[in-house]
C-alpha cells in the first residue's frame, strides 16, 4: 500500500519530505514520553510503542518511495492479478528483496494503530476513574504528572 507511483517527481519529493518530518516528530514524541517518565505508565506506554511502530512504518514507506520513484532503482509492475514483476536498475537482487519487504509496510502500520487505540482506551478508562482536576487543566490528570512539567 505504501509504495504507490506518484504523478510527478515533485509529488514524490513532497511525500518523502513528509515522511522524514513524520519520523523526526515521532522520534521526538518517543523521547518526550520517556523523559516524562511515562514509559512505565499504562496508556502512555502503549502510545510510545505506537510511535516506535509508526517510525518504522514511515521508514519502510520512505524506502519504498525512494527506491521506486525519484531514484528509479526499482521498477515494479503487476502481471495479472497475483504476480509482480520487479526489476532493479543495477540488477541487484538484494534491492528487489528490500523493495518486496518494504511493500509489506502494513505489518507495521497496523500494530502502530492498534497500540495507539490501546493507549487511548486505557487513558480513557483511567480518566473515568479520576475526576477532572480543576487545579491542573494542562496536566495529564490520568497519570499524575510531576509539577515541574518534565
Amino acid at each position: 500500500m505504501a509504495a504507490r507511483p506518484h504523478g510527478s517527481p515533485v509529488g514524490a519529493a513532497v511525500v518523502l519530505f513528509s515522511h522524514l518530518l513524520f519520523i523526526i516528530s515521532m522520534a521526538i514524541l518517543t523521547g518526550w514520553i520517556s523523559r516524562r517518565g511515562d514509559t512505565v505508565r499504562s496508556g502512555w506506554r502503549e502510545i510510545r510503542y505506537s510511535a516506535i511502530f509508526f517510525i518504522h512504518w514511515s521508514a519502510f514507506a520512505f524506502t519504498a518511495y525512494l527506491l521506486e520513484d525519484p531514484s528509479g532503482w526499482i521498477a515494479a509492475s503487476r502481471i495479472g492479478s497475483w504476480t509482480l514483476y520487479i526489476e532493479s536498475a543495477g540488477g541487484h537482487a538484494f534491492l528487489v528483496w528490500i523493495y518486496y519487504l518494504v511493500r509489506l509496510d502494513q505489518l507495521l502500520s497496523v500494530p502502530a494503530m492498534v497500540f495507539l487505540v490501546l493507549g487511548l482506551a486505557r487513558l480513557l478508562a483511567q480518566a473515568k476513574l479520576t475526576p477532572p482536576d480543576e487545579n491542573d487543566p494542562a496536566g495529564d490528570r490520568t497519570e499524575g504528572v510531576r509539577e515541574d512539567g518534565v
Partner: peptide, 8 residues
C-alpha cells in the same frame, strides 16, 4: 524478477 504478489 517475477515474484508472487499474494503476500503483499
Amino acid at each position: 524478477m517475477t515474484v508472487t504478489a499474494i503476500p503483499i
